[in-house]
Design a protein around this nucleic acid. Structure first.
Length: 480
RNA sequence: GGCGCUAUCGUCUAACGGUUAGGACGGAGCCCUCUCAAGGCUUAAAUACGGGUUCGAUUCCCGUUAGCGCUACCA
């Protein structure tokens, strides 16, 4: 029975690294027919926030992968306390009455005493019980075996055999003085109780795992299989943080910019994992089928972003590629909200006609705002009259082209083929190249030089709008 | 400081100890073309450094360097 869990703590938004951890957990479970568990690790009462919790759910919901079971650690305090007590009762943990040290800088790091607070570990049971009964605050610390400096071992599915001497593991806290178990304790207690079979998490927990192995052993349960993932880091080599790198590390930023959820998932999977056969664009099912720990890399992966390009170019490419591969109605449904946001209103039927024209011209759904504006706005944004002048042409040519277009469009059959034939004939008549004829029309109608192919554009815009805009352009030329 | 982990093109990565070190993104160039895209073709670009082991190291071992992580009553 394979069971994995994703255990975010609600102390920040869902960032791209956490999202990847979730995705890898999900893929591993789906690949092996296992169960995905979402557990909110909210034992740090001081730092938890509802806002953060909302952000995590929002991000996960967008990913649209789902999960099978849900737990919240704060609902399970009793279990954590109970299991802490079990360890304490076995004599594998002890009370430490030393007050919390806010300034960790003062802690002597070179001395051998960093492993535990002198006096606490050796305190007699009687004194310990007496002081606790007297109401003196204490933390419970794990009594890491010292007499025999044994090696704690586990075999990581990604990093291979790991070992660390107990001489290098400090007496870590299990229970805070406020009675709330620490992350290490609560996490292991839950993993044991919920019967997690595989712990897949960031490599930042690799060295913590030795402590966890110790806890599982003290609890008398077999530790799960561990699989640590290389970290995602910023281009400057530091770990991703909102403070330092801004909103680009948050999953919702990708959503709001117009990434398709699957393209995002696809991109993130390629960070620190490889299907090993040169594939990059993969469907969800292909990812599930291909995923395994063998393909997980051990070196940290850099997400390539900058102030100028807030998103990794490969993520953008993958998104564009995904957009191009979509059926028009599906894509239309996805862009519609972005168009509505940009233009105030975007009739669905019109969007459906515009969608094929922008499909291979947008990389992010949000690009609809700059690529398709002229389809939706009534008044074109002001543009430079000089734009109307075709290559190797002059003002007079622009004017002739537009006046000719005016006549042609008034009578032509308003379809791609009809416009194609009529406009090309018009160009011949004026003895100009097709491009010289089309360019002024395009600018008059779109307000800029770069736009989708002309005939489809005209057709979609409709005769009335086209003539209106061309008339306006001629007017502008006359004023020159 | 201690302990742990890591090191292939700018980035993501591939390569049973034997390859002209492969692919992708991005860059450059060409083609196609009514503009922009898209597409096609071409091209530049990497095994951190030093020692071993071996007939032969990107690959195995050691060291150096660099980066990251842990070293909290954070997770």
């Amino acid at each position: 029975m394979l069971r994995v869990r994703f255990a975010p703590s609600p102390t920040g938004y869902l960032h791209i690294g956490s999202a990847r951890t979730f995705i890898f957990n999900w893929l591993y479970a789906r690949h092996n027919g296992g169960t995905v568990i979402l557990r909110i690790d909210d034992t740090d009462v001081e730092r938890n926030s509802q806002q953060s919790l909302d952000s995590i759910f929002e991000g996960l919901k967008w990913l649209d992968l789902g999960w099978d079971e849900f737990y919240r650690q704060s609902d399970r305090l009793d279990l954590h306390r109970q299991l802490t007590q079990v360890i304490f009762d076995k004599g594998l943990a002890y009370r430490d009455f030393t007050p919390a040290q806010a300034d960790i800088e003062d802690k002597p790091r070179d001395a051998a005493t960093w492993l535990y607070n002198p006096g606490a570990r050796e305190m007699s049971q009687e004194e310990s019980d007496r002081r606790a009964a007297a109401g003196e605050p204490f933390v419970i610390r794990f009594r890491v075996p010292r007499e025999t400096a044994e090696d704690v071992r586990f075999n990581d599915a990604v990093y291979g055999p790991q070992s660390k001497s107990t001489a290098d593991i400090e007496d870590f806290a299990l229970l805070r003085s406020n009675g709330v178990p620490t992350y290490h304790m609560a996490s292991c207690a839950d993993d044991a109780d919920i019967r997690i079979s595989h712990i897949i998490r960031g490599q930042d927990h690799l060295t913590n795992t030795f402590k966890h192995v110790l806890i599982f052993r003290a609890l008398g349960v077999e530790p799960p299989q561990f699989a640590h993932l290389p970290l995602l880091i910023a281009p400057d080599g530091s770990k991703l943080s909102k403070r330092k790198h801004g909103p680009v590390v948050s999953v919702t930023t990708y959503r709001d910019a117009g990434f398709l959820a699957h393209a995002f998932v696809n991109f993130v999977c390629l960070l620190g994992w490889s299907p090993k056969n040169d594939r990059d664009r993969m469907s969800r099912q292909e990812l599930v089928d291909a995923f395994g720990f063998e393909g997980v890399n051990r070196a940290n992966a850099t997400i390539n972003f900058s102030d100028a390009d807030p998103f990794d170019p490969k993520a953008v490419w993958l998104n564009a590629e995904t957009i191009r591969g979509m059926a028009i109605p599906d894509l239309c449904r996805e862009v519609l909200p972005f168009a509505e946001r940009a233009f105030g209103a975007a009739p669905a039927d019109k969007m459906l006609r515009v969608t094929p024209l922008i499909q291979e011209r947008i990389k992010l759904l949000g690009d609809v705002a700059t690529v398709a504006d002229f389809f939706f706005v009534r008044e074109l944004a002001p543009y430079d009259v000089a734009e109307l002048i075709p290559q190797k042409g002059d003002l007079a040519m622009a004017r002739r082209a537009l006046e000719s277009a005016q006549r042609i469009l008034a009578g032509a059959e308003f379809t791609h083929d009809g416009l194609d034939a009529a406009l090309r004939a018009g160009a011949q008549e004026l003895k100009v190249k097709a491009g010289q004829m089309f360019q002024p029309i395009r600018v008059a109608v779109c307000g800029r030089k770069n736009a989708p192919p002309l005939f489809e554009t005209l057709e979609t815009l409709g005769r009335e709008t086209c003539l209106e805009r061309i008339a306006k352009a001629i007017e502008m030329l006359e004023k020159q």
